[in-house]
Design a protein around this nucleic acid. Structure first.
Length: 451
RNA sequence: GUGAUUGUAGCUCAGUUGGUUAGAGCGUCGGAUUGUGGUUCCGAAGGUCACGGGUUCGAGCCCCGCCUUUCACCCCA
């Protein structure tokens, strides 16, 4: 039998975990600094919690868990014969793997509303699963690192999250661009031309402007069923360019008659004004083609792109005004972001942006020449650890050549050799694996050299 | 879900128009070297050619199916 893992999943070797932990620890530390508190939720949720929250596409991508036991007991032969998987699945599956961290969080907020003080700031770092077809930067199991604030309408939250994003990527030394949009502006555009359900087609078409040109975009919109008048109305929006200020001015003109649209512009402007005073390292750009998560976002929408590596967005987020509504709790607005840890990991790998000093694990390997030395070695590693030095003792009595190769392959910077000579003279021999330098002396001097 | 693409030793890959016993490098193990790794030399182990069927005197190579890899679309972190 060949050892393999399911499609779209990954194993991580020790050196890879060191890199991933560097990412997780960085994000965690920033979350903590911004006052978010950690929670966890189960890997699986009731399907009733998950279904219908991510649109039709999302429902298809949910991993469903077979009921335990005789899961076909309640399915009649007639029903089985129909082969209608989508209907039948409800009969033998009532749990699914979580698809993101936001919906389980909404469930969590409603369920524990009596134990939570609003505004509630939580962070959550856990894997999610999607039955997608894997490709570059897309996995079926990946970690999201979410920070959300629920129970506050203030745009200060948006500003704080943008600052947090800037903080994280600055620490990770990644060049990124924050793209910003507002769902209300998109609604305004739709309102303007009376085509509420065409908003996705419109954003997709705008997105292609730079690639295929105005004429082709207009042609595509025509094919999608927009009237010539409607296309003419939104043409200034398709060709929108320049800095954020110019874009906002143009939008104000075009959307002047739409109150929702103007509200979105106002929000965007306010956020940008606040952020301008914070001197962030990351550039922020208004991007009307950002329509991500259209299913539940109601205000700000944001996305982060790596400037050095071509991969999908590495962070996304936005405001959702009524996510808890479906769980029976109305009028709670939230805003949140989600770092895609696995994509950030891929980007960092490609750029090799890991600080070396944070990557190695064991500092010292103790090499015994024989059994007697092994006993002495046990005492030595114990004392090393007491001094805060990560140390291990080679567990088998084998040739020193082999023990040194172990240290070498594992990138252990120091070894301590213990043989008959060392025991007789009460000394230790320290070897620097990088330089090959060796020093024999008493325990305290050797320890001092390592520290 | 749609369209391509990949699969040969633990890893990376050769393998001619179908032709005898399928190769290399790296890694592993042993030795040169019983107290010295990362350099060198010698040797060894390691294969259901993804899997199942078919064509053929003969298939790693051709055909069909299936799984898998990677990529694009859709959607997304």
């Amino acid at each position: 039998m060949k050892p393999t893992i399911p499609k779209g999943t990954r194993d991580f070797l020790p050196n890879e975990m060191a890199k991933r932990n560097y990412i997780f620890n960085t994000i965690k530390e920033v979350f903590r600094l911004y006052g978010f508190n950690q929670i966890e939720t189960p890997a699986m949720e009731n399907l009733s919690t998950l279904m219908g929250k991510y649109g039709e596409e999302g429902d298809k991508l949910l991993f469903k868990i077979l009921n335990s036991g005789d899961y076909l007991a309640n399915v009649s032969a007639d029903e089985l014969v129909t082969k209608e998987s989508n209907k039948l699945v409800n009969k033998f599956s009532e749990k699914g793997l979580r698809y993101d961290l936001t919906v389980p969080f909404a469930r969590f907020v409603v369920q524990y509303r009596d134990k939570i003080t609003f505004p509630f700031k939580r962070y959550q770092i856990q894997p999610v699963w999607r039955a997608d077809r894997p490709q570059k930067g897309r996995y079926r199991e990946f970690f999201q690192c979410d920070a959300d604030i629920v129970g506050s309408d203030s745009l200060v939250n948006e500003v704080e999250l943008i600052q947090l994003i800037d903080d994280v990527f600055t620490r990770l030394q990644l060049n990124v661009l924050i793209k910003l949009n507002n769902r209300k502006i998109l609604s305004g555009i739709a309102e303007l031309i009376g085509e509420h359900d065409k908003i996705v087609d419109i954003t997709v078409a705008i997105d292609k402007y730079e690639k295929i040109g105005l004429e082709n975009v207009q042609k595509e919109l025509l094919e999608k069923g927009l009237t010539l008048h409607a296309i003419e109305t939104i043409t200034p929006i398709i060709t929108l360019s320049g800095d954020n200020g110019t874009k906002l001015e143009m939008l104000k003109k075009v959307l002047a008659t739409s109150s929702v649209g103007m509200e979105g512009i106002q929000e965007l402007q306010t956020v940008l004004n606040y952020v301008a005073g914070l001197n962030l390292k990351t550039a922020i750009e208004i991007d009307l083609t950002l329509a991500r998560g259209l299913n539940y976002y109601t205000g700000a929408i944001l996305e982060v792109k790596s400037l050095d590596v071509q991969i999908g967005s590495i962070t996304g987020g936005g405001r959702y005004d009524n996510l808890t509504g479906v769980f029976g709790m109305q009028g709670v607005s939230g805003v949140g972001i989600s770092f895609g840890a696995d994509r950030i990991y891929d980007v960092l790998n490609q750029l090799e942006l890991y600080p070396k000093e944070k990557m190695n694990q064991t500092n010292v390997l103790v090499l015994p020449f024989g059994e007697k030395e092994q006993v002495y070695g046990l005492e030595i590693v114990k004392e090393l650890r007491k001094n805060g030095i990560a140390a291990e003792l080679y567990p088998d009595v084998v040739k020193i050549k082999k023990q040194l190769a172990y240290a070498d392959n594992n990138g252990i910077p120091y070894v301590i050799l213990i043989g008959e000579n060392e025991i007789n003279t009460q000394t230790l021999t320290l070897k620097n694996m990088l330089t090959g330098e060796q020093y024999t002396g008493d325990k305290d001097t050797v320890f001092a050299k390592i520290l």
